[in-house]
Amino acid sequence: MDMMVRQSNRRVACERWKDLVGPRIKKIIDKIGQRATEYRAHRAGEFIFQITGCGEHGSKHAVDLGLHTCTCKRWQLSGIPCVHAVCALRFKKQEVALYCHDYLMPSTYMEAYNPIIYPIAGQEDWEPVDYPIAPPLFKQQPGRPKMKRVKEPGERNQTTAPPAPKEGKLPKTGIKMSCRVCGQQGHNKLGCPITKAAKAAATVSP
């Protein structure tokens, strides 16, 4: 809706323009015209002028009104006659706005905002549609397929889970073993000192 209103307001504003260009460009031209009195125009041809600044060390620029060019390059870059071009146009008593680029003219402005964005009805006025929405078609991506899923950010910092038990047996991860002979922790029956002593004694005896 904002774009629709914006387009309409721009068309209405353009119809109220009284000058050959928009009001913003008109202010720029008037500001440049105030500085044009600091230069002097010297005719070299019907459309070619040399513009010299006032003073002993004044700048010199060549202006071609036919090609819309100036050696300072400001006219070519902005599309608005520079101060040197304005000085030459005043010498020829020409309207400065006529030498602006075409994209600054009201006709071009209206072409840009002429398309109408039509309003749309509210959701309560929409016509019901009775057909299922199918999922997008599957497309096989190039390369080797991934075998593991992409983990969430919170899962990446977690430690790996213990392996799954085999045939119903629980894993012994984190469990301290206890000896059946002496009852102490840290070893089993095979590593018990009592069992080792008994085996050693049986080996030594005849």
Rank of each mutant, 00 (worst) to 15 (best):
R43M: 06
N9E: 09
Y99T: 02
D130V: 11
I194A: 02
H42E: 08
R40S: 05
P153W: 15
C70Y: 01
C192W: 02
T52Y: 03
V129I: 15
A161M: 13
G55N: 08
P106T: 09
G191F: 14
G53N: 01
F49H: 01
E46D: 12
K60Q: 05
Y103M: 10
D19V: 04
R16Y: 11
V63H: 01
P128V: 12
K196H: 09
H42P: 01
D30N: 10
I32A: 05
G122K: 12
H42D: 02
A164R: 15
V5K: 13
E56L: 13
I48W: 03
Y99R: 03
M110D: 01
P128L: 11
S107Q: 08
E15M: 10
P142V: 12
M1E: 09
Y39I: 00
R40C: 05
V86W: 01
H84R: 06
Q50E: 08
V21Y: 00
C87G: 00
P162T: 09
M110Y: 04
K146M: 11
T37Q: 11
A85Q: 00
K172E: 05
K199D: 03
N9C: 06
S205Y: 08
A36H: 03
I133L: 11
W17K: 01
D130P: 00
S59R: 15
Y118H: 08
Q158M: 13
H187Q: 04
E127A: 07
G168I: 12
G168D: 10
A41M: 08
A201T: 08
A197D: 05
A44P: 00
K146T: 07
W126N: 02
K199V: 12
A88W: 02
L98V: 10
I28S: 02
F91R: 07
I194N: 02
K199R: 14
I117Q: 04
K176A: 07
V86D: 00
F47K: 06
T108W: 14
E111F: 11
I29V: 15
A200N: 08
G154N: 12
M105R: 13
W126C: 02
H101T: 10
Q140F: 10
N188A: 07
P163E: 07
Q7R: 15
A62M: 14
M3F: 15
E127W: 10
P132D: 04
D19E: 11
P163N: 09
D102M: 10
Y103T: 08
E111A: 13
I32S: 04
A164N: 10
K151E: 05
P132M: 07
Q185W: 13
N9R: 15
T37K: 15
K148A: 03
R90F: 15
W75A: 00
P136Q: 11
K196G: 00
F49M: 03
G33L: 10
I28P: 01
Y103C: 06
G22L: 02
P128N: 06
G45D: 14
P145F: 11
K26Y: 07
R16E: 09
M4P: 01
V150E: 03
L104D: 01
A200T: 09
C82A: 06
G183M: 12
T160A: 10
L104R: 03
E155F: 07
I117A: 04
L65Q: 03
R16T: 09
R6A: 09
P115H: 11
Q76Y: 07
A202Y: 13
P23K: 07
V181M: 02
K27N: 04
K151W: 13
K73P: 00
D64F: 14
